[in-house]
Design a protein around this nucleic acid. Structure first.
Length: 785
DNA sequence: CCGTGCAAAAAACTT
DNA sequence: TTTTGCACGG
């Protein structure tokens, strides 16, 4: 059982003793407790490379689970670089991708087929919405999101309908109704030959448990299983790992042990409780897997000491955790910069200005990231970034694939790939308009229900329904198109399938013919999707339509990252996990946002929000900025915002407040905000550490003063609270160095430099009171004086 | 069946 | 502030 414990020395180059041990240890189970930035990816890749290089394992015997597809691709690449050869056959993927792969191969075992559809959250919700309506369940107070949440939670705990029914309290009418919903939801998925996100994991576990001979195939195949971000696994994922590492049923006389398991994680970075992640999976690892080895990685190779001290100090406020302190030999580095804006636009303007400065100082845009708690916060940032000509990219948020026109076209592809799926079919039945209204749809559905057949089947029999000749012809035409394309689904290229569909349905023409001005952009999006399918075929010559649909369903926000993009990256704190940047801006550090309102009621909520803050802080290599706004507009009206409680958990001497909450308050604030700011504690007098006193460093530091002088920074009341994000079309306005201009938000100023680039010309303007700003000439709200 | 207009609701994090 | 649901007339 014990292997030779020596990996060739080159794999250990530059590793510290703990890292070496994590690479070299050979045994049944290993837990690597890896603090932020402690080089765990490096350790994991070297561990895999070591197993391959020493011939302890073939590539096909390795299963590595990562958090995103991008991380998987990177890991594969790094392993290949290390051992200098292709590692074909190795499974490196996310939980969901690995399960889809297994399910596509094994679906026939339990009533599905390999061309099943993956329902994303929106699809699940659409289905739930239908069911609630049908059962009149809203009368019992059920909403789509409450039901979706409850079902997801149950599935993450591996509770299926029958288990739930056994324990349900039938005296409670609401519970009976919920059971009906759950039952019908499950039945509809099965009939549609579809899995929702949670099913991908849960049904794989079910498959393994119900069919030991199927499980044995994978138990024998994977000899080494490695799981990254183990602290964010939920019960279903944990069970999957358990099943995979079990000793295979000995049905052919070859006794073989269970696979070795390596997990890497950090309970301080557990931020997915809302998705069912159970921190106990990592905390109780040693109990779950007896005789396991634990290796601790605490040396941080990423951040400066000031950043780490802030992170350590914040996270130490979470009790119930194993004490762990990150350290570095890099040195203190710059202080953390703090800023309080009057509004979210003011905050965004500060960030834009700082990014310009960083860029001038030689930091690439791609090495800068802006994080926020909620996607809604991007608006102000985007408005200001556009005006300031800062190249940026938003990860996640409203994604390309969530646009209506893209969902339509995807629904065509799904309908073709999986004829059993009524959800996709219903979506496209009357898009583009064919005269198939709600009444006709109901008639078709009715026909399907009575004949115990699929909706697709009743489309083909539309002539038996006694509908009008026009409608009947339209339905038969659609059925014909879908059937014709379905026939070639396993062999044809995705781009060809899509082209045929678009041609036969006239989808794009319908958009182009519309007089809605937005439809032109929609048509372009469809063209963009078409070129994506072409790109998919190039990248993936043997890729089928199913492969394409799978890839699209499982993309994560962080998968979109393009390291060569040359743009600033904007993303949520959740998306930021696992990434690192030279300079990081953490925005909206306010009560209500971080910690978020919704977290207050949940057990462990504030602690999880603190971990989220901790994750954000530890993404930064050299520069960290913390910003907030005094007021924040939500749902149209403006609310007063208070500084986050977590700010006072950072030792005040680590933060250089360019504009502290206290300062902002004294100038423009009229609201009783920041009640916990001790305004009297001037000059950082009573820096009571960890006490109840709020102690922002009282006044601006020497650096801040020097900077203020440099920028000719006059009292900010004159302009700062006016920053709005408005834009204007200036046509072909040209500016020259020395021109005087007037800006709606910043007042008068003098152009100090211009970069001519047509519509993208950028001017740098020294304003009389507002400092130096970068402006995109074409749209800035300015007039030449 | 389709398009329009107005009222109403919903806005955490994600695979 | 933006998206969605519903009632109306064509």
């Amino acid at each position: 059982m014990t292997f030779t414990p020596t990996a060739p020395p080159d794999l250990l180059d530059g590793l510290n003793p703990q890292q070496r041990e994590a690479v070299q240890y050979r045994g049944q189970s290993l837990l690597i407790v890896a603090g932020a930035g402690s080089g765990k990816t490096s350790v994991l890749t070297r561990r895999i490379a070591g197993l391959l290089q020493s011939r302890e394992a073939w590539p096909s015997q390795i299963l590595a689970i990562t958090f995103t597809n991008k991380a998987a691709a990177e890991m594969r690449e790094r392993v290949e670089t290390l051992i200098g050869r292709a590692s074909e056959g190795m499974w490196i993927s996310t939980f969901h991708s690995a399960c889809v792969r297994i399910l596509r191969r094994e679906a026939e075992n339990f009533g599905f087929t390999k061309n099943f559809t993956i329902y994303d959250s929106a699809d699940s919700r659409a289905l739930i919405k239908r069911i609630i309506k049908e059962l009149d369940a809203d009368a019992y107070g059920f909403t789509v999101s409450s039901v979706a949440g409850k079902i997801s939670k149950l599935k993450n705990e591996l509770n299926d309908v029958e288990t739930y029914a056994r324990n349900a309290n039938f005296n409670d009418p609401a519970e009976r109704v919920f059971l009906d919903i759950f039952r019908q939801y499950t039945r509809d998925l099965q009939r549609a030959n579809a899995f929702d996100f949670d099913d991908l994991i849960g049904q794989t576990v079910y498959l393994f448990r119900a069919f030991p001979h199927v499980a044995a195939v994978y138990q024998r195949r994977f000899r080494h299983i490695l799981v990254d971000e183990y602290q964010d696994t939920n019960h279903a994922q944990y069970s999957l790992i358990r099943e995979l590492t079990r000793q295979p049923a000995d049905d052919d006389g070859r006794a073989i042990g269970g696979a070795s398991l390596t997990v890497v994680g950090d309970s301080d970075q557990s931020i997915y409780a809302f998705r069912g992640a159970d921190i106990r999976n990592i905390v109780e690892f040693e109990r779950d897997f007896p005789n396991s080895k634990v290796v601790l990685l605490e040396q941080n190779y990423r951040s400066t000491q000031n950043i780490l001290s802030a992170a350590n100090s914040v996270i130490s406020n979470n009790f119930d955790r194993k004490d762990k302190k990150l350290f570095t030999t890099i040195g203190d580095g710059e202080k953390i910069v703090g800023f309080t804006g009057y509004s979210q636009h003011d905050e965004a303007q500060f960030i834009a200005d700082e990014i310009s400065t960083l860029h001038q100082d030689g930091v690439d845009y791609k090495d800068i990231a802006v994080f926020y708690r909620t996607n809604a916060q991007t608006r102000a940032l985007e408005e200001i970034f556009i005006r300031s000509a800062i190249p940026y990219r938003v990860l996640g948020g409203t994604k390309f694939y969530e646009r209506a026109e893209i969902k339509d076209v995807m629904a065509y592809l799904i309908a073709v790939a999986n004829p059993a799926d009524p959800l996709a079919l219903r979506r496209i039945m009357n898009v583009p308009k064919r005269g198939i209204g709600p009444a006709t749809e109901a008639a078709l559905q009715n026909h399907a229900d009575h004949g115990e057949q699929s909706l697709r089947e009743s489309l083909r029999q539309a002539d038996q329904l006694g509908l009008g000749p026009k409608v009947t012809a339209a339905i038969l035409g659609l059925a014909d198109t879908l059937d014709a394309v379905s026939a070639s689904v396993d062999t044809a290229k995705v781009a060809d399938i899509l082209t045929t569909l678009l041609q036969r349905t006239g989808y794009v023409e319908a958009l182009r013919a519309s007089r809605d001005p937005q439809d032109e952009a929609r048509a372009e999006n469809v063209e963009e999707l078409l070129s994506q399918t072409k790109e998919f075929n190039t990248r993936n010559p043997d890729g089928t339509l199913l492969d394409f649909l799978t890839e699209v369903s499982l993309v994560a926000a962080a998968d979109d990252l393009d390291d060569t993009s040359g743009t600033v990256s904007l993303m949520t704190l959740h998306t930021a996990k696992g990434l690192e940047y030279e300079a990081v801006f953490l925005t909206g550090i306010e009560e209500g946002l971080l910690p978020h309102q919704m977290s207050a009621g949940e057990p462990g909520g504030p602690a999880e929000e603190r971990r989220l803050f901790y994750v954000g802080i530890t993404r930064a290599r050299r520069r960290l900025y913390l910003s907030l706004a005094m007021t924040r507009a939500q749902f149209g009206d403006v609310n007063v915002a208070m500084p986050s409680r977590y700010l006072q958990e950072i030792p005040p001497e680590l933060i250089d407040w360019r504009q502290s909450p206290g300062m902002a308050n004294s100038r423009g604030g009229t609201q009783p905000r920041a009640l916990n700011v001790r305004r009297d504690s001037a000059a950082g007098a009573g820096a009571a550490s960890g006490g109840s006193g709020y102690s922002y460093s009282g006044g601006p530091s020497a650096t801040a003063l020097a900077r203020a002088a440099r920028n000719a920074d006059k009292p900010k009341t004159e302009w700062a609270n006016k920053v709005t994000g408005t834009v204007r079309d200036n046509g072909d306005l040209r500016l020259a160095v020395g021109d005087r201009i007037r800006h709606d938000d910043f007042g008068d100023g003098r152009v100090s430099s211009v970069t001519e680039n047509g519509a993208k010309s950028v001017a740098e303007v020294q304003f009389d009171t507002a400092g130096r700003k970068r402006l995109l000439v074409k749209i800035a709200p300015i007039v030449k004086l």
